[in-house]
Amino acid sequence: MISALYRILTIGRNTLTEAVRQKVLNVLLIFSIVLVGCSVLVSQLATPGLDSAGLFDAQIKFVKDFGCGAIGLFGFFIALLSTAQLIPQELHNRTIYTILAKPVRRSEFLLGKFLGVVLLLALCVALMSLAFAATLYWQELQGLQATKAAYTADPHWQSNPVVVNLYNHDVASIHQQTRDPQIIEAILLIFAKLIMTSAIALLISTFATSSIFTIVTTFMIYLIGHMEGTARAFWLANGAHVSLWQSGLVGFVSLLIPDMNSFTIVDEILAGNKVPWSHAFNLLGYADVYLIVLLAVSIVIFDYREI
């Protein structure tokens, strides 16, 4: 068991090394970090020429939405592109022959490659999150500065306890939005969604003959996954009132496609609404179990694949 884990880790580290030494991914990562930083500029666009103290709420919303949106979007591209060419490249270059001629099981090989992608995504999300934290910090500084400027217009403001109370309230409000611990929850959920996307791509690549097919199919499943909730509600509600064909199609979507839309609870977290950790753990648990199922099916299909 230990030796199997060691082999998986060895292959995982090798996959990560390969990805890190690839220029395409580096460019994508740099671009994403820049875009996270640019969310600050976009927030200025949203409230042009207005007093930024009073409209901090709108600006910080933009920074959070765009920052996390960039992490999600670029993470999606990195997950999709790096996973889709994982198996085809090994088959095309035949490097898989040399590895499988060693005492390595096919399942260990597959899990090792996937581990490499997970490590890559973790690294990318961590770096992008650091950039995001930096933009939040910068926005906080701007907000505090503007608030202070608005109050210090009256030189005697500190002697009036009501005004001081108002100032403290405004500062607390700014801190509450920029230092919200729920942001970590949001990033974890984004990461879980990326891992699921990667696992879907891996599953398809175990039987697909080209990377393009894997990329297109995974993207479609990703989109359909955001409507799975609607399909599921429809399927469960409408037993006998629809044709077999319709029922079959909707049923197929409900039974097999993951509910990607449930991860958009991240929008709620970023809007400042309270989403308890118990719900986040529920979602993360769902993602974990789904991941295990996808990996198990991938292993079965890959075990029997002609190479």
Partner: peptide, 16 residues
């Protein structure tokens, strides 16, 4: 496979 070694026909190794 612990007792077997394989030299492939073409270099099926990682170039990086």
């Amino acid at each position: 496979r612990r007792r077997v070694g394989f030299l492939p026909e073409n270099p099926y190794f990682y170039g990086f």
